[in-house]
Design a protein around this nucleic acid. Structure first.
Length: 596
RNA sequence: GCAGACGUAGUUCAACUGGAUAGAAUAUCGGAUUUCGGCUCCGAGGGUUGAGGGUUCGAAUCCUUCCGUCUGUACCA
């Protein structure tokens, strides 16, 4: 048993023994003690004064006395108002370290037997990925890894929006202005080529609107009647009728886009276990409409359209099927939710989608629960905030989007530039150097986007994101590389790293104890990050850990330490820190170098 | 209009979900190294937590009224 748990157990016993009352174990919790006070863990007694029937000080003092005599880990305590600060015995830190150090599966919690699907990325095939998608992809990947580490079986899913009027727009523009251009002939990545025609459509469409308005049409009429739009709508009809020419063009252009996306995904370091295509799923959900009508969850209006009434839940009436019997967005989302369950029998389903769709998912989940789906309670919308730029909002029409490919390239180049200036990579082959730049550039970018609470909107400052100091990915990567250098040297001079080699230690420095406390926290942080779907919690933890290690490194000698037990211990502590950093960083999708 | 989210040092973010004197990073200023990697370490200044009221032992956090920013509110996806 972890000694934090044993302290909590002790507190529970203390309540029984001192105050003859029972408190549930899950109501008790320890917080790390603030630096200004003596001690490592703090128990706040205020909430339990009713049970003790005593003043805060007296309650805390009685509990402290009990713990000091009955729990081995607690060596001493002090009371400040209602705060009981516990001082942990030195030997306890050492045995705690041994426990962590010798654990083979540190950083992986036991299976909980539950299956969860994480859907993320979900791009449109008419334009390339931008900064907002980067946040989505990094978040989705990391949350999936965190859930795995927390004991879930995880299925990563991508739902590709590969059909609809927006794709037809790119296709129409390509027919008009493409002149048979291909990725090869243009030298453009496939997704960028498609995006180019999407933009072309928009400019020509606007021009047509303008001339129609000059000919006397209202703005609304002009929008509806512009020939290009009519063509796109006609093309969508043909696509739905499986017109062979349209399907051929659609296949060709989508093929280019997928090739482009795959390259981008590879560089981002994300992957998927299953890919769903809307061209296959867009007709799903109509049987659920029937089911809902039969169950009385939905109702029909005179014109034949089908609705759900969510006014009792604080929402509106919401359309689930048009009067002409065709689907809307939510129809196919209902169908896809069932499909996911049929395919994998998942207990939970996480949708990583921006917060502008909060309302939509609120509606969808309420419907699925009303329909009594077994996976209903496990539906979760991981709603993340927008990414802003210092210049304001990203708007594709105003050309202020930050392209994902360009940004990644820029980050890697900056990393290369930085590293070359420092001149610390002599002996690297060309390939090793390239790999390192990639690691650092992508590490900086991912860390920058993941260190912020996903729910909040965030500001992307290009200058700050490529900083290598402070709360950044490269700072943590550097810390790892530095430890790796120590481990190489330790191996060279043959330092004994077995737990037995420092079994006789009794005194620890403050930074050493603090490091152990942090290392021991790792699995708790994984659990918390997974429960909150927040990689930011882990990112913050890794930064704290790297900082604490650097303090330890600056204060205490390792190879200059004469005492061989202490030397072995400090190398082992370094090794455990490196392992934790490496594992932790991998959970937020970042690799760490051995040298940099 | 209605609904929801957000507002914290100059700036970007935290605050263990109601706990101690609101913390980091960055920028600014000052210091450390005959040493295992200076992309390091130590220190200083910087705050009426948008404003007011309430709840209680205790509020950045909960309730309420304003102010401000954003999002949603389509038989679009």
């Amino acid at each position: 048993m972890n000694f934090q748990d044993s302290i909590l157990q002790g507190i529970q016993d203390a309540f029984t023994s001192c105050f003859q009352t029972t408190v549930a174990l899950d109501q008790l919790s320890l917080a790390p003690t603030k630096k200004e006070f003596e001690g490592s863990y703090t128990f706040v007694v205020f909430p339990f004064l009713k049970q003790s029937q005593l003043s805060p000080e007296a309650t805390a003092t009685q509990l402290g006395n009990y713990l000091k005599t009955h729990v081995a880990a607690v060596k001493d305590f002090n009371v400040v108002k209602g705060f009981l600060n516990l001082v942990v015995a030195q030997e306890e830190w050492i045995s705690l370290f041994n426990q962590v150090y010798t654990s083979k599966i540190f950083g992986q919690l036991p299976s909980n037997g539950l299956k969860v699907m994480v859907e993320y990325s979900s791009p449109n095939t008419n334009k390339p990925l931008h900064l907002g998608h980067l946040r989505n992809n990094f978040l989705g990947y990391s949350v999936a890894e965190l859930l795995k580490a927390a004991g879930y079986e995880v299925i990563k899913a991508n739902l590709v929006n590969d059909r609809g009027i927006h794709i037809c727009k790119s296709m129409v523009a390509y027919q008009h202005f493409g002149n048979g251009e291909t990725p090869t002939s243009s030298g453009l990545k496939g997704d960028h080529l498609a995006g180019k025609y999407y933009v072309l459509f928009d400019t020509h469409y606007k021009a047509q609107q303008k001339s129609l308005m000059e000919a006397g049409q209202s703005e609304e009429e002009a929008k509806k009647n512009a020939p290009l739009l009519l063509e796109a709508q006609e093309m969508l009809r043909k696509w739905e009728d499986q017109d062979s020419d349209v399907i051929a063009l659609w296949n060709q252009m989508n093929g280019w886009v997928y090739a482009g996306f795959n390259a981008t995904y590879q560089r981002m370091g994300v992957d998927f276990d299953v890919t769903y295509y809307e061209s296959n799923t867009y007709l799903l959900g109509k049987d659920i409409v029937e089911e809902g009508l039969a169950k009385g969850v939905f109702f029909k209006k005179e014109n034949g359209s089908v609705w759900v009434d969510l006014t009792a839940e604080g929402l509106d009436e919401k359309l689930v099927l048009r009067g002409d019997g065709t689907s809307v967005y939510i129809t196919q989302d209902m169908g896809t939710a069932d499909l996911k369950y049929q395919d994998y029998q998942i207990n939970k389903s996480v949708y990583v989608v921006g917060n502008e769709q909060d309302y939509h998912f609120d509606v969808l989940f309420k419907i699925m629960r009303k329909l009594g789906r077994s996976y209903g309670p496990g539906l979760y919308h991981l709603s993340y905030g927008m990414v802003d730029l210092p210049t304001g909002k990203m708007k594709s029409r105003e050309g202020t989007v930050v392209d994902a490919d360009e940004l990644m390239e820029e980050m890697v180049e900056t990393a290369a530039h930085h590293t070359k200036e420092l001149g610390k990579i002599e002996g690297f082959t060309e390939a090793q150097a390239t790999e390192l730049y990639e690691m650092l550039g992508m590490g900086a970018l991912k860390y920058f986007l993941l260190k912020v609470d996903p729910k909040k909107r965030m500001l992307f400052n290009p200058q700050e994101s490529i900083e290598f100091q402070g709360n950044t990915g490269p700072f943590i990567q550097y810390s790892h590389a530095r430890i790796a250098a120590i481990l190489r040297k330790a191996e060279q001079i043959g330092v004994n790293l077995s737990a037995e080699s420092f079994a006789g230690l009794s005194e620890l420095a403050e930074t050493e104890a603090a490091l152990i406390q942090l290392l021991n926290d790792f699995e708790r942080k994984i659990k918390q990050a997974a429960e909150d779907y927040s990689p930011a919690i882990l990112a913050q933890y890794l930064f704290d850990l790297a900082k604490e290690y650097n303090r330890f490194y600056a204060e205490l000698p390792i190879f200059h330490e004469k005492d061989s037990q202490l030397q072995s211990f400090r190398v082992a502590l370094s090794l455990q820190t490196a392992k934790t950093i490496k594992r932790g960083m991998s959970l937020i999708g970042i690799q760490v170098p051995e040298r940099m």
